[in-house]
Design a protein around this nucleic acid. Structure first.
Lengths: 213, 213, 213, 213
DNA sequence: ACGGACGGGACCTCCCGTTGCT
DNA sequence: AGCAACGGGAGGTCCCGTCCGT
């Protein structure tokens, strides 16, 4: 009983330590021994929880995925409309790639390690799917024109978001990705949204004070 | 003289072998011994030319950079206008990420290895600069409206292109990046180009039969 | 338990293989890869047990030291007196430098490699100490005159023994070191041993049929 | 003409630099590049003069051999008799192994490097021969008993001297090799020299104030 | 669940000796 | 005679994943 809880704790602490070290030294240059040392545990323990170094990295990415879902739920909860939720999500995703350590590390992992081959595809699909869902909702409530090719648009937005996240990571947040997104949405809104719906939308970055912990 | 040539030859052959093996097995899973074996040379020779495995990867990327410049020159030579050259370049860059081994490997290297930390920034800047230059030329010849913020536009396009290249690599070419670019340019042309200039532009993919060797 | 035993086994086998190869090719011309190949193990395993090539050589010498102690114990066990034990030891030590592979290699290592700097001093002291102990015992039982300077004599004998071992190694056993020792002991006995004790001593080489395994 | 002289100079300087570095760092840990750097010359030059690293070491030893002959000549010139010359030579050879850098390095080279296999035998023979010659001379002038086995005695003395040189090098001169030699000669003189000749001999160390430069 | 020794294999460094040129 | 680049090859380090025992 207690053992199980302890085991779970160890797993969590290993992930937390990995995030710190991957952030500081990068995936390749972080040794599992270093991770274990920080948790005061040996490799035997680590390999109880993760079958390989890659799996440990994948667990970090999974953490990020889980967070993304939480963020989405939170944004949808507070948003007046699906499209607004989508717009805010794009800002948030790029912003988090800079501010939140887990997200930053996960994106770096996805695009600078062997995890690319394993998970980058999944990530792209998952982002595209999320966008498509929100777009579809927006079509249903009449906020987006019914003749829009949701699939195509979602794919394009996904590329833009991932490009933005990457840009953020590359330039360590010194690039004005927010500005880019504003430009993007101003154009997209003209194309996608019926004129009478436009004034209810905010295309500028949301004032996100901790939408998620 | 002969020695010098031989040394240079060895260097070239090492790069060529690296490209092949990085393409087949990925950066991390390719061992330097394997590269050397293929060139029938020992690690002593390799380390005469490259101070580290990363440096070998960087040399591959450099090859790609050099090719990019050649492609740009070739495209500019055959294009009727700067903007058309830019449009064609974007198609080419995404296309090459799929068809040309050197480019494909380089992009994978840039975004899936520790080279990211070293070179991704440089790559982004270099792509953005190239776009900006062509846009500026286009402004000068009146092909693009003078009030366009060249810098901002270039940054956005860069993100799109890199997203596209990445998408190509992720999906191993199975994604319709061409279609995305066509959509993109159709919108951009409306925004950037004075009406009377539009009919001279082709926004669809160019018929590139070997613009470069 | 099994692992530990295996680890120990690996260590032993590495030493055994080293002895063979050092004997055949010499220290410098023996590569660690060759040693590992013979044990069907990689350098990773070797460096788990020995921090350097020198340390591997030192382990061989240590083997020799251990053997020397065993030989001494065995000789003392069968000898009728301390001085006879000493005489027999000197013959044995020079003889073993020729016949026993471990001793031969160790002596070559001690005097033909960088191990000299590390261990030759220790070796000299250890030999001199052993001689001194036996001489002291001999004095106590009245086999050696009480006015003999045990320290000085031990030092001289040590130089002679080491010179003899060296001579043996240099000439690959073709030199008559036995004869030299016989000459030496005949003189020494006259000086060191009271007349009434002399007839019980044999100064000629002992018939050593395997005093040690 | 000048070139030849310069070439010779370079050779000398290479040997001198080698002696310094071999003395400081040992043979193995001294790189030829380091030697060349000190002489402000490149390896191409070195390999004009010496076909291998071993050959360079051998040249140092040869220097030592040459010095030995000079010392012998000098000692013979000032000595009243062959046996006295021999006695003084033994002191000198052990003493020089401590005080003279060339001799010290040569002895270390002979007994701590691959040069052992090449030259140690030669050295032993050469020392034994020198002793034998002097002993023979001593026999001829009636200073040593005619029934002495010159060959055997020479061999024994050689082992003692080389043991002494080694001891000197091992203990960096902190050992009382002089005392050992005095003891040795006191005994030998009793055995080898007719009684009426003994009072003309000095068995204690000679007051060598620079017998050689 | 965890500890810790073990072995495999990759990366990298250093240095010897060669070669063509000056 | 001397230079400088070159390549071969060995030594050494690091780290992943496994195995056995507790």
């Amino acid at each position: 009983l207690n053992d199980l809880a302890d085991g779970h704790r160890t797993r969590e602490r290993l992930i937390a330590a990995s995030i710190e070290l991957f952030d500081r030294d990068g995936f390749t240059r972080t040794s599992l021994d270093a991770v274990c040392r920080r948790v005061r545990v040996t490799k035997g323990a680590l390999y109880r929880h993760f079958p390989s170094k890659l799996a440990l990295g994948a667990a970090v990415v999974e953490e990020h995925f889980r967070m993304s879902h939480d963020v989405r739920a939170a944004v949808e909860a507070v948003s007046p409309s699906p499209l607004q939720a989508l717009i805010d999500m794009t800002y948030l995703m790029c912003r988090l790639a800079c501010t939140d350590r887990t997200v930053r590390v996960s994106v770096r992992l996805l695009f600078t390690s062997e995890l690319f081959d394993l998970l980058a595809g999944t990530y792209c699909v998952s982002v595209a799917t999320m966008i498509r869902d929100l777009l579809r909702d927006a079509v249903e409530v009449g906020q987006v024109r019914p003749d829009v090719d949701v699939r195509e648009e979602a794919e394009g937005l996904m590329m833009m978001i991932i490009g933005g996240q990457l840009r953020t990571v590359v330039s360590a947040g010194k690039s004005d990705v927010d500005g880019q997104l504003t430009m993007l949405w101003q154009r997209q809104v003209d194309r996608l949204v019926p004129a009478e719906q436009r004034d209810r939308l905010r295309t500028r970055p949301p004032p996100f004070d901790r939408v998620v912990d």
